Simulated assay, not measured.
Amino acid sequence: MKRSFIREILEAIDEETISFAGGLPSEKLFPAEDIKIATLKAMENPKIYQYGISNGINELRTQIAARYTKEGFPTTKDNVLITTGSQQAMYILAKYFEDKDITIEEPSYLGAMNIFRLNHLKMEGVKLENDGVNVEAFENSFKNTKLTYLIPDFQNPSATTYSDEKREKIADIIKKYDGILIEDSPYGELFFDKKNVSMSSKLPKNSFHLGSFSKTLVPSLRIGWIRADEELLKSLMIIKESIDLHSCGISQYILTEYLKDEKKYEKHLQDIRDDYEKKANFFSEQLNLIMPEFKHEKPKGGMFLYGTFGDGIDTFALVQECLKKKVVYVPGNQFYIDKIPNGEIRFNYTHSTFEQIEKGIKLIKSCL
Rank of each mutant, 00 (worst) to 15 (best):
M291E: 07
K325A: 11
A280V: 04
K359E: 12
I313E: 10
Y349W: 14
F335R: 02
F335V: 06
R346L: 13
Y276S: 05
K362V: 08
M303K: 13
V327A: 12
L269F: 01
I272R: 04
F316A: 08
N342P: 03
S352T: 13
L287V: 06
P292E: 14
E321S: 15
K325Y: 15
E344Y: 11
S284C: 09
D275Q: 12
F294D: 00
L363R: 15
G307N: 07
E355D: 07
G312R: 13
G302W: 02
I272T: 08
M291L: 15
F309A: 08
L305P: 02
I313Y: 11
R273D: 01
N348K: 04
P331H: 10
V330S: 10
Q320Y: 02
K362Q: 12
T308E: 14
M291F: 10
N288D: 15
E321T: 12
L323N: 04
D314C: 12
P292I: 13
A317T: 06
N333G: 01
F347G: 07
K359A: 09
K295P: 00
T350H: 06
G301V: 05
L289E: 15
E358Q: 12
F347P: 03
Y336C: 01
G307A: 11
C322K: 11
K264E: 06
D311Y: 07
E321M: 14
E266V: 06
